[in-house]
């Protein structure tokens, strides 16, 4: 039911295909083992995303030493803009992934949940934030991300 969303999530957290596969398996295993603890206090979707993001965040922390420094959205916004010689639609996704990959974990988690179409209440449940706080953060982040994304091809 959530296989596609989980695949998108691991793509946002891990670039290496082999490690991505391992991460996906780790998430599936964690979900499988945790389902018996699911008491229905939140929706199944929220539960799945919460587990998946926790595992993915732990994975990022483990990999952090090997990877380059993670950036905040504001830092990405201030980065020099690179020219993109290709204009094919498929590159949009790569550009979006590049932006997401460079986010620090809390910003990344928030944006991923937003991109998965979860509402502020559900995102708040997953991240332990109030809905108002989530709306405010999402508004700020999506503005920067969208601006940066659409400016990506310009010098």
């Amino acid at each position: 039911m959530y296989a596609d969303a989980l695949e998108r999530l691991v793509r946002a957290y891990e670039l290496d295909p082999e490690k991505r596969r391992d991460l996906l398996q780790e998430i599936h295993l964690a979900l499988w083992l945790s389902f018996e603890k699911f008491e229905g206090r939140c929706s199944l979707r929220t539960w799945v995303y919460r587990i998946a993001h926790n595992i993915a965040t732990s994975h990022v922390i483990r990999q952090r030493r090997a990877n380059s420094r993670l950036l905040s959205l504001e830092e990405i916004d201030a980065m020099p803009r690179q020219s993109d010689p290709h204009s094919a639609d498929r590159l949009d996704l790569e550009r979006l992934l590049q932006l997401i990959h460079r986010l620090n974990p809390p910003d990344r988690e928030l944006m991923l949940l937003y991109l998965e179409d979860l509402d502020a209440g559900a995102i708040g449940d997953i991240m332990g934030l109030s809905a108002v706080n989530v709306r405010s953060k999402v508004h700020r982040l999506k503005t920067i991300l969208a601006r940066r994304f659409h400016a990506g091809g310009q010098p």
Partner: peptide, 22 residues
């Protein structure tokens, strides 16, 4: 392009990803 449309574009791009693992 408006800001809202841009954000929705990102959602569409994000959700249009195809599965890589069978």
């Amino acid at each position: 392009m408006t800001e809202g449309t841009s954000a929705n574009d990102l959602k569409l791009i994000w959700q249009s990803q195809r599965r890589e693992h069978s």
